[in-house]
């Protein structure tokens, strides 16, 4: 490398490199350091001890929140696949006109541009006891009096989060389905396989990478959400992010909150690396 290219490399590289070190690497490290500190209300004392992690393991309320969050994120991802797969399949294999295909694709992606907070809020106004769904069901005579079963429970959270994150499921599945060469499907049909067998043996396996990518994205996004639980989750709807937020807020125990955030970080990184491995396996089969 000549001196000139070295200087050029330095000029291009140093702003992003400095930024990532100062605003990403250092803060994550500080978070890690905080997680070993002790909280002496209302202060935090520097220390090196595993008490915060011990609390997370031994106090059942944290384990419960974690399991609840995993369950909700799992249900959201499954519901999103169930809705997104047929939709993406329809766009790629059933719609012939490119204009219609683009319009239907944009129809799913467009809501991403509309405020996430407001999209979650509108479900609160629909599902509430005084809400639009209840009053609609009463005015049509289906219900006699307003029901409280729609809002402030896990179903409402799964519904809202699925609604908010479904574009992240449609996009990768669509991309994966679009990449399948039509000749492979034709070959399967010519060799006498039925439509369903062709789907099961050719289309589905080849689109699995997209499903995995979408599943990972949807899972991680709903796993870290704290707005839907706040709006539609109700009293026992708190998820991990809500608990972290309260440790950094009213509960004023930053060390414990940091430890919980690191547990979340490790879980998310674990999920991503497992899904990376699966995706690579899928690519290996395609090539």
């Amino acid at each position: 490398m000549t001196l000139g290219t070295r200087i050029r490399t330095g000029l291009v590289l140093s702003p992003p490199l400095l930024w990532t070190i100062v605003f990403m690497f250092v803060p994550y490290t500080i978070l890690l350091v905080y997680s070993f500190w002790r909280a002496q209300f209302p202060l935090f004392v520097p220390d090196f001890q595993l008490g915060n992690y011990r609390t997370l393991i031994t106090d059942p309320q944290y384990l419960n929140v974690l399991l609840r969050t995993l369950k909700i994120a799992g249900l959201v991802s499954i519901s999103a696949v169930i809705l997104a797969y047929p939709y993406a399949y329809f766009l790629v294999f059933k719609v012939r006109r490119p204009g219609v295909r683009l319009a239907l694709y944009m129809a799913v992606v467009a809501p991403l541009w509309v405020s996430y907070l407001l999209r979650a809020y509108t479900w609160k106004t629909i599902l509430g006891t005084q809400g639009i769904l209840n009053s609609f069901l009463i005015s049509t005579g289906v219900l006699d009096e307003p029901s409280s079963v729609f809002l402030y429970n896990h179903t409402a959270m799964v519904l809202t989060l699925t609604y908010v994150f479904i574009p992240f499921m449609v996009m990768p599945i669509y991309a994966a389905l679009e990449k399948i060469p039509p000749s492979l499907i034709e070959a399967s049909r010519d060799l006498g396989e039925g439509a369903f067998a062709t789907f099961r043996k050719v289309t589905l396996p080849l689109s699995l990478t997209g499903v995995i990518a979408g599943f990972t994205m949807t899972f991680c996004l709903s796993f870290g959400d704290f707005i839907a639980p706040f709006l539609v989750g109700g009293p026992d709807g708190a998820m991990v992010a809500n608990v972290i937020a309260s440790q950094f807020g009213a509960a004023l125990n930053w060390p414990l909150g940091s430890a919980l955030a690191l547990v979340m970080l490790v879980l998310v990184l674990g999920i991503i690396s497992v899904s990376d491995r699966f995706e690579r396996l899928g690519h290996g089969r395609l090539e």
């Binding site: 992003p16 990532t20 605003f23 990403m24 690497f25 250092v26 803060p27 994550y28 500080i30 978070l31 905080y34 990972t216 994205m217 991680c220 996004l221 796993f223 870290g224 959400d225 704290f226 992010a241 972290i244 937020a245 950094f248 930053w254 909150g257 940091s258 955030a261 979340m264 970080l265 998310v268 991503i272």
Partner: peptide, 21 residues
């Protein structure tokens, strides 16, 4: 890895780590 992390990382972690700093 560091640059691409926030795509999948919950925003709350970026928020509290920077707050701590």
């Amino acid at each position: 890895k560091l640059v691409l992390l926030p795509i999948a990382l919950p925003g709350i972690i970026t928020g509290i780590s920077m707050l701590s700093m």
